[in-house]
């Protein structure tokens, strides 16, 4: 079943065309890795999928969810690295939509946030200060926060940027587990092309328009794949 259909999508960014005539379908349970060089339209695609940018033409159709029911994990910012908030406070900001207009969180919402911390293996960090965690621990917390706003689809923007190799492997294993065991569809943007491509079942290669979309194995053997991965010194 299609979870998401992108049809002939064209989006402008700062007056020039960032995405041109892009079409692809994603099925429920897919693990998609979006690759491409800087300025190839990856961020624009994410913003448009999240409903933060309007398509200039074409459409994005979700089957059984709205753009507000997507779990989003943006890139870390400088502001966050030493932020004085507890892990629980951070994860709860992912539950704001579900909490509606109530100014405080209910016990049920807090329980839900704790459950998601457990799913990302960060339950024991709940009371710690976010700013004092290691890079890998911070990413686990942000993943838990993203899970608070979705049951179906996670969009991850550079989830392993600035992580050491050990933490990188742990985060990949965690994303894989969320995909395989919890059936959550994943869209991941990554610069770490080699590993990301090994992880994901499907590849979307962008260069302002579609270069390749399909299974990872087909991509590795395709001319585009060989060129791009070779470029990255595979």
């Amino acid at each position: 079943m299609n979870l998401l259909s992108v049809k002939k999508l064209t989006v402008q960014y700062d007056g020039s065309e960032a995405l041109h005539d892009l079409s692809f379908d994603l099925e429920s349970g897919d693990y998609l890795c979006v690759i491409g060089e800087n300025g190839s339209g990856k961020s624009t695609l994410i913003k448009t999928l999240l409903g933060l940018k309007k398509p200039d033409s074409g459409s994005i159709e979700y089957n059984g969810l709205t753009s507000a029911q997507i779990g989003y994990m943006p890139q870390q910012t400088d502001i966050q690295r030493d932020f004085p908030a507890s892990v629980m406070e951070v994860v709860l900001t992912g539950c704001l939509k579900a909490n509606g207009f109530r100014p405080f969180f209910t016990a049920k919402t807090k329980e839900f946030a704790k459950k998601n911390l457990q799913r990302t293996g960060a339950a024991e960090l709940a009371k710690k200060c976010y700013g004092e965690l290691s890079g890998g621990q911070q990413q686990r917390v942000l993943l838990a926060r993203a899970l608070c706003s979705t049951e179906k689809l996670l969009i991850l923007d550079e989830p392993v940027a600035n992580l050491d190799p050990k933490a990188t492997n742990e985060i990949y294993a965690l994303i894989d587990k969320l995909n395989k065991e919890h059936g959550i569809t994943i869209i991941m943007v990554s610069h770490d092309i080699r590993c990301a491509a090994m992880q994901a079942g499907k590849i979307l290669h962008l260069d302002k328009t579609l270069v390749f979309f399909g299974d990872t194995n087909d991509y590795i053997n395709s001319p585009e794949g060989r060129h791009f991965l070779g470029h990255e010194h595979l």
Partner: peptide, 23 residues
């Protein structure tokens, strides 16, 4: 700060995430 405490925290901590969740 009392009524919108959590939303202010969300916006301060991570503006892009807050926007994506509809804040």
């Amino acid at each position: 700060f009392v009524l919108f405490y959590n939303k202010l925290l969300a916006v301060t901590f991570d503006e892009s995430f807050a926007k994506a969740t509809g804040i």
